[in-house]
Amino acid sequence: MTQQEALFSYCLRRGDDNLILSHRLGEWCGHGPQLEEDIALTNRALDLIGQARNYLQYAGTVEGKQRSEDDLAYLRAERQFVNVKLVEMPNGDYAHTIARCFLYDAWHLPLQQALMNSADEQLAAIAAKAVKEITYQLKTSGDWMIRFGDGTEESHRRAQTALDELWSYTGELFATNEVEALLVKAGIVPEMAPIKAAFDATVNAVLAEATLKRPPDGFMMSGGRQGKHSEHLGFLLAEMQYLQRAYPGATW
């Protein structure tokens, strides 16, 4: 694997994680538990789609085969997507959606903070921009976890259930392979150990205040980075890609 191929794969991973989570959050549009939260989730989705665009544009540039961000988003098949399974899981109830956002943000922030020091100028620029947005997102998803956990018996139960269901999907966030190994050596991407430590610190602090229990680390899901997804991703892509598949090159 060349450095160029590794960088392309890395950009796809970052782009796909953001793109798929953004789509899931967009599904809440018109269905939020209250108007303000409906707007909040689509705002979050907008930030994520912006970050996804930056990565997919750059992936296209690095690859050098004239593929645009839209080509990469709309014309790849399920097995070519390399997002983690965490982001493709269905939304569940509101506590489930917020718990997923919280776990994602708690990993995403330290990762992007570290990427600000990347030897690759474009990755550093994308990260410096994203960090500001993710800081705000983590603050609000953390606040909701505390409100749910330390709220009513019902909100506590739902938040704990969501955490228990999602926990086995967090391992994949920290998994690395030859792509990261090569790029870490070149100073382009950070080591994962400090990111994991920052994630643990955030999760432990917020869950303690929320009176929620951190689920034990047991079996962890994997496969997303290799394109082996759950059955849910195919349905998501069918909806997301329908228009470009049915009317190739359509614009408006």
């Binding site: 303000e36 939260e37 707007i39 909040a40 705002n43 979050r44």
Partner: peptide, 13 residues
């Protein structure tokens, strides 16, 4: 503050 997010990405309510 009513909501940390508002009518556009740059605003809160």
């Amino acid at each position: 503050m009513v909501s940390a997010f508002g009518s556009t990405a740059c605003k809160a309510l």
